[in-house]
Amino acid sequence: MKKEVNYSNEFLKGLWDINPVFKQVLGMCPVLAVTVSAINGLAMGLATTFVLVFSSLIVSLIRKIVPNQVRIATFIVIISTFVTIVDLVMKAKFPELSKALGPFIPLIVVNCLILGRMEAFASKNSVIRSLLDSTGNGIGFMLALIVLGSIRELLGNRTIFGFQVLPELYTPMLVMILPAGAFLTLGLLMGLSNWYVKKKEQEEIELIFSGYRSATTLNTQTELN
């Protein structure tokens, strides 16, 4: 029996349905620490996505060779190889960015998001599905980081991606680019997303109910006829 595979869903689910930051709540250390500006969020998101996609590719390729007992060790070796590559390339070609992201690039190795995707998806699925899944998750992670970084940069420094958005009249709220601001912003965004999801669910239930109601009235009418 051939399994029906919805490829576009494999990619899209990472953006919202299982968004690494808002739904899985994974990789909180970089999310909170590096999002002082939108550009830092973008860079961290890109680095993580790169590591995620390539580790997924390799893990999925060798998933049938790796013995179950040493799978975690293998994943870690593969992930750390790619992280070291990112770290070296950044140091060589983008020294400014590497300085700004500091110790967080090497720490991608222990980002639960990456090991989580390896364990939960790439080690069990085909190469194409793993690539789609990891790209979706990586981009979902990156978008969340950019949103968080933009909000914090805007309120704490008047700018987004370095461009001044708010007028001089606005006194920047320093707390937003301090660690406390990261927790506040993330908490409020998560609250907002949960509120939206709940509202949507409620609407869906209402829809099903109303559909059921009209169906029953229709049924009774036909019965009467």
Binding site: T74, V77, S80, T81, T84, L88, V89, K91, A92, K93
Partner: peptide, 24 residues
């Protein structure tokens, strides 16, 4: 499996590091 993975990743890292070090 572990040995070959170690060797491959070591080799890759060595070459990337060789390339990057002069820039750094």
């Amino acid at each position: 499996v572990l040995t070959s993975i170690g060797i491959i990743s070591g080799g890759v890292l060595a070459s990337v590091s060789n390339w990057a070090n002069p820039f750094i």
